[in-house]
Design a protein around this nucleic acid. Structure first.
Length: 800
DNA sequence: TATGTACGCGCC
DNA sequence: AAAGGGCGCGTACATA
């Protein structure tokens, strides 16, 4: 039997730790409250000598050694003078930054949310805005100065004037909230830093400034500058520090000057970082006679600008006409499953009604507490019972107390079932895969039920059957909860007044893929798993349609191209179903069956008198499925150990399958060896378009980490090159004159798939162009053709 | 009360 | 000693 149990890995935890580090920065950018305090920088700044002539603030002692000489712009007259200087320096690079209020970044994105309280511009050490060369412009846009910013609209929207930003997407959107449509992206220091070194932990302006700019130019974070201790109930100062709202810092006389200095400094830091990063990229080879800055400017800058267009557009979800009924249906289902499970569990657990079915800890104790289960890491037995805190809705009064407490302890006793699998920390896992093993594949089927481990444990018979059915209900509860909590609800909450969702599309991955946040639109339930048809909520406007186009086997085609593998190239050249062909190559008896005309390789063969012959994928479906798994596993660097676990076969058997795969494709094995070798020498691996991924893990003393690095060394060229193909394809789609003329625009990208929206009447015409653009992302052809499948429909669900 | 960690799960 | 790459995010729970 195939098991899908996933082993916990230390690698995953390493990667995860990094994600959180990064996320805390992403969720709370520099404008927000909770930046980590930078004690080192603060100490350095406050202890250095006061040679600065910065004199506009009595509280400026915080920032002594960085002189930004801000020129405040509050009136039309001042703005006109500044604009004249800006336009006289058209050819220069201008670093810009905004400060924003009225936005809660933990709940909403910048499209349609947030107002700019001020903007700062720094145009380099030569430009003099009136405070001497190298001063900054500080454009006030609050209170009586509101509207000043808009006077600069022409400057921001001029495509010929290069502006550089840190996290351009955010600024572009908030400026658009003031009807300022920026163009002329000169660079985004966040993207440049990612391109220069994609394995950094932090990409915040602060972290980059600290690491890349000289010690005498450093940035102090907001918490350091403006943080005030929270006042506790008793009136004393608490330990937590919060930052007053932006608009308050800008208004209050005691913080105003410091704030002006702080925000101006961000623009200066961005400018200096841009210079520094340009230099670094310039000194990195891209291709013959060209450097990474060339690559950045030619592809990544237009790509980044395009991503903000997509974010701004958003995608419509039927928040009012569809999602609520969907939610109701899901909640009804949930209640049904919940009732079924609790009724069963009551027989074994007094507090079954109060158990939190979303708690892994409680489920773990209930099923696996006691018995012979031991933590494989620590050797400790799993406790036979545990207490959990629950709300005291029963109003139980504790002994010796007069009134009931708000919370009470609830005891769960373990059934002592043998654990199926363990988490990374050595606790019995209660994942869906584990519960599935307990319940069996199909315990509720009337005709042909199949039961899992719980059947035997409860002594078989009716009791065993009931247990399996109950656990299946529990499984359903988790599944439905995920649907409601991760998809159905957030989609409704995040839609704007027009029902459109504006996720943030980030260039923040190690491999060059995009990621999507708030919400993540790249993990919406797909196909069969989309039991509630959530993708039907994504709809085109009346009169419009979607085109959903995806690359078929993109990564495998890329693998074939990169490795120049004869057998793979041939398989793709002959067309048809790649996985069937792999299965054919790996099993003699399938070859015989095909040669004897007993089965057909693929659907295209079912013509004329062969129409009634069955297909390989139907007759040998398990072989094909295995071949498919193997195809992907090898691209990811899976080992015989992992494959053996997945397939529930011995390691030797798994290795034999792998060997058979490589036998037909020796170039792949050679390439993998060569690539790891080279990565160890150079410390990096590269993609087709020449992007680098540094792999410091390859030099780790921890062999687990090292192996992870080796797998990354061979996976990144595949995944990253696939991302390259997609990026180039999207740039073609974006710049295609015909598509523009027909009114078709990109909305989303899901790694190997794009969603476009446009007038229904031109859908067929547009589709032709879409196919052409995506199939020809490069001037040069790859060694295998790219296969694009496109469909036009009214909803995302229907277009698959 | 706020924050970090662990677990688990959705997608390609 | 671990044992498939890349993501984002909701929930529970421990800790400060």
């Amino acid at each position: 039997m195939i098991s899908f149990l996933k082993q916990p890995t230390i690698c995953r935890n390493i990667v995860r730790a990094k994600q959180y580090d990064y996320l805390s920065k992403k969720i709370m950018p520099r404008r927000h409250f909770t930046n980590n305090s930078n004690i080192a920088a603060a100490t350095k700044l406050s202890s250095s000598d006061s040679s600065s002539d910065y004199s506009s603030s009595s509280s400026s002692s915080f920032i002594k050694n960085v002189n930004v000489n801000p020129v405040p712009i509050r009136t039309r007259k001042e703005a006109m003078k500044a604009l004249e200087i800006l336009f006289n320096n058209k050819e220069k690079i201008h670093a810009c930054d905004t400060e924003v209020c009225n936005i809660d970044l933990s709940k909403q994105g910048p499209v349609g949310n947030g107002q700019v309280t001020c903007a700062t511009i720094y145009s380099g050490p030569d430009v003099d805005f009136g405070s001497g060369p190298g001063g900054t412009l500080w454009i006030d846009n609050l209170d009586e100065s509101e509207g000043t910013l808009h006077l600069f609209s022409e400057f921001f929207s001029d495509a010929k004037i290069r502006k550089v930003w840190h996290n351009y997407s955010f600024d572009r959107h908030v400026l658009y909230n003031h009807s300022i449509d920026t163009h002329g992206l000169g660079g985004d220091t966040m993207h440049m830093a990612r391109l220069w070194d994609s394995s950094r932990q932090k990409y915040s302006l602060e972290a980059l400034t600290m690491d890349l700019l000289p010690d005498d130019f450093q940035k102090t974070n907001m918490k350091e500058l403006f943080g005030v201790p929270n006042i506790k109930k008793d009136g004393t100062e608490g330990k937590n520090i919060s930052i007053p709202p932006i608009e308050m810092l800008q208004r209050l006389p005691e913080t105003r000057d410091k704030f002006v200095h702080y925000s101006s400094l961000d623009a200066v830091a961005t400018w200096k970082l841009h210079t520094k990063l340009s230099n670094k990229l310039e000194n990195t080879t891209w291709a013959q006679g060209q450097n990474m800055l060339d690559f950045y400017k030619r592809y990544l800058v237009p790509f980044a600008e395009m991503l903000t267009d997509m974010e701004r557009r958003g995608i419509y979800v039927a928040r009012e006409t569809y999602l609520p009924s969907l939610q109701l249906q899901a909640e009804t289902d949930r209640d049904k499953y919940e009732h079924a499970f609790r009724e069963w569990a009551k027989q074994y657990c007094d507090e079954a009604d109060r158990m939190n079915l979303a708690s892994a800890g409680q489920k773990c104790t209930f099923f696996f507490g006691g018995g012979k289960n031991k933590n494989p890491k620590s050797g400790e037995p799993i406790p036979a019972e545990r207490e959990f805190k629950v709300e005291n809705i029963e109003g139980i009064v504790q002994e010796g107390k007069k009134k009931p407490n708000k919370y009470r302890q609830m005891k769960i006793k373990g059934l002592g079932m043998p654990a199926i699998n363990y988490t990374a920390t050595g606790i019995p896992a209660t994942s869906a895969a584990v519960l599935k093993q307990l319940a069996g594949n199909n315990p509720s089927d009337d005709v042909n039920p199949s039961y899992g481990a719980a059947y035997e444990f409860f002594g078989g018979g009716q009791k065993g059957k009931d247990a399996c059915k109950a656990i299946e209900s529990l499984l359903q509860i988790s599944a439905v909860d995920t649907m409601i909590g991760t998809f159905i609800k957030p989609l409704q909450e995040l839609a704007d007044d027009d029902g459109r969702i504006h996720c943030s599309l980030n260039l923040n991955t190690e491999t060059g893929r995009l990621s999507s946040r708030m919400p993540n639109l790249q993990n919406q339930p797909a196909l069969e798993k989309d039991q509630y048809k959530i993708r039907d909520a994504f709809q085109a406007k009346p009169g419009n349609s979607f085109i959903v186009a995806d690359y078929g086997q993109l990564e495998l085609r890329v693998l074939a191209h990169i490795t120049n593998c004869k057998s793979m190239i041939e398989a793709f050249e002959s067309g048809g179903d790649f996985h069937s062909r792999t299965a054919l190559g790996m099993n003699d008896y399938i070859q015989h069956a095909v040669q004897a005309g007993k089965v057909l390789l693929e659907e295209g063969d079912a013509v004329g008198d062969k129409a009634n012959i069955p297909l390989l994928k139907d007759v040998y479906s398990s072989e094909r499925r295995r071949a498919k798994v193997l195809n992907f596993s090898i691209a990811y660097g899976k080992t015989a150990f992992g494959l053996a676990k997945d397939w529930d076969v011995t390691r030797v058997e798994a290795q034999a399958e792998i060997d058979k795969w490589y036998n037909d494709r020796p170039e792949v094995l050679q390439w993998q060896k060569r690539t790891i070798e080279k990565a160890k020498e150079t410390g990096f691996t590269r993609t087709m378009m020449g992007r680098y991924r540094r792999l410091p893990d390859l030099r780790s003393s921890n062999s687990g980490i090292r192996s992870h690095g080796e797998r990354a060394a061979i996976n990144t060229p595949i995944q990253g090159s696939a991302a390259d193909v997609m990026m180039m394809g999207m740039l073609k789609l974006h710049t295609d004159e015909k598509l523009k003329q027909l009114g078709w625009e990109l909305l989303l990208q899901i790694h190997d798939e794009v969603i476009m929206e446009g007038p229904e009447e031109f859908a067929e015409e547009a589709m032709e162009r879409v196919l052409y653009c995506m199939e020809n992302p490069f001037q040069k052809k790859l060694r295998v053709d790219l296969n694009v499948d496109a469909k036009t429909e009214k909803t995302w669900y229907r277009a698959k």
